[in-house]
């Protein structure tokens, strides 16, 4: 069986790229000049349709503004990767605010009843994004960090039950036919559920079929054979 790594963000990790794309509200501490100018030039290069030219006239980062510059005090929603680059030890062009789903009100809900909350609707990358957020030097950072850990622990039982539910019936929580409770999971939890469930199904299959079945061929071998077959048919 191939090496199955638990999710760890790295340079090429798509999930990490998506998680850092999530937006948070940022307030500009200084004027940022000429982004409108840039936008007009850039739009002509990158896009080549009339819609693009309309957009080009507006400010790059703030499509709703007609100014060439972004004034101090403007609040915009910026993706995390940009916000972090603009607000760190070297630069404080913006100051960040925590998105409302990580604020006090939502935190209280999650502490009380984590297992019924629809994390997917709140934010697909709830844990990852929250984890990055708690890295900002904000007064709520530690609270958010603790919240994520607590939330994960509270919801784990659900994931384990669903992964080990051999009938594959995921509507057992009594929410009515047609509602799939696993749709309420965040991306991280869903990854755990998928791997957990596939290994459980393998075990159930083994228990019901009895012993002595051969070990399947490795993916590497199957792919190699497929490639050889493809090469043979091409040549």
């Amino acid at each position: 069986m191939p090496l199955l790594r638990s999710y760890t963000p790295h340079y090429f990790s798509i999930d990490d790229i998506m998680a850092t794309q999530e937006r948070l509200p940022c307030k500009f501490e200084v004027d940022v000049l000429r982004l409108g100018e840039y936008c007009r030039n850039q739009a002509k290069i990158i896009m080549s349709n009339t819609t693009a030219l309309k957009v080009a006239k507006k400010s790059f980062l703030d499509p709703s503004s007609d100014d060439e510059d972004i004034k101090t005090g403007t609040t915009l929603e910026l993706p995390y990767w940009l916000a972090r680059a603009l607000c760190n030890r070297n630069r404080s062009i913006v100051s960040v605010n925590i998105p409302r789903i990580y604020k006090e009100a939502y935190r209280e809900i999650l502490k009380a009843e984590a297992s019924v909350v629809d994390l997917h609707r709140l934010c697909v990358y709830f844990y990852e994004f929250g984890s990055y957020l708690s890295g900002f030097n904000h007064r709520d950072s530690t609270e958010i960090g603790n919240l994520l850990v607590q939330c994960f622990k509270d919801r784990f039982r659900l994931i384990m039950d669903w992964a080990q539910n051999s009938s594959g019936d995921t509507s057992g929580s009594g929410r009515g036919a047609g509602s799939d409770p696993t749709a309420r999971l965040d991306n991280l939890e869903r990854g755990l559920l998928i791997t957990g469930r596939s290994s459980w199904e393998a075990l159930e299959a083994w228990l019901s079929q009895g012993g002595g079945r051969p070990i399947g061929p490795a993916n590497m071998v199957v792919n190699h054979q497929k490639r050889q077959l493809a090469n043979a048919s091409v040549s």
Partner: peptide, 11 residues
Amino acid sequence: ATMSVAPNLFS
């Protein structure tokens, strides 16, 4: 340096 993928030793 930034692009090398390292194993998670805390697994």
